[in-house]
Nucleic acid binder design. Structure first.
Lengths: 115, 115
DNA sequence: GTTGCTTATCGTATAGTTACGATATACATT
DNA sequence: AATGTATATCGTAACTATACGATAAGCAAC
């Protein structure tokens, strides 16, 4: 790259883009859904659920943790994960506002282009 | 990669992941918002709006078109773009179902892990 | 037909993502 | 202390994304 231009964009949009990137792989979607269904999971539970190697699942968990959508805690020899409710709610809200805004405009003003 | 495992995941999740990937860059978020606000745009309008070169904007538009969130049409020497309302609505709906499901579970069953 | 304008595509460089196996680390249990 | 279990991290490979400039392609207007 010539250099990333990410920081030339509004912070709010950068944040929404990052959250969406967290959902841009089906494994991470599955992980979040499983964590929601079970309340909490150890890494090994998720490995059984997913068609991926243990190290790969651990990597996806790390990504979700860094983005802030899950929390992790050491529990003896295991690691216990759960969804970070507060940040997840922020994400849902930000996405909702974006979607609402667009849907509203699309209703007001029909798209004139036909392909 | 050892080989992509994307197709070992449920089609529904792969689709949602792809739509989210479309929003995983702030330029594409901006493009969608601008298209919604103005109803339609030519590529050059978007280039003025964004801190990116013309070829880069064209690339982002191509990506959005391939994913199905925007439509494009040739208009003389220009290209006219607008949001693909139908697919955008599908995306919003799929995302909403995912978010709802998770929020519901998070309310039922508090996350026990604290970090 | 030539000029000018707009956009797409090509070539390319760099950075980031996804995936795995192997290994290290950390704790429990014997 | 030694062994076993669970997970994180390292090393690595392949692929994908981001970005730009340069060029090609398409159309309008002269």
């Amino acid at each position: 790259m010539a250099l990333s231009r990410i920081n030339d964009f509004p912070e709010k949009d950068v944040q929404l883009a990052e959250w969406c990137k967290a959902l841009s792989h089906p494994a991470r979607i599955e992980i979040l859904r499983t964590l929601a269904n079970r309340g909490e999971c150890i890494c090994g539970d998720l490995v059984l659920d997913l068609p991926l190697a243990q190290s790969t699942v651990s990597q996806h968990l790390k990504a979700l943790k860094e983005i802030g959508l899950v929390q992790g805690e050491v529990d003896g020899p295991r690691s216990l994960y759960c969804i970070d409710k507060k940040n997840f709610a922020k994400f849902i809200k930000a996405f909702g506002l974006f979607g609402e805004l667009i849907n509203q405009k699309l209703n007001d003003e029909a798209c004139k282009v036909k392909l």
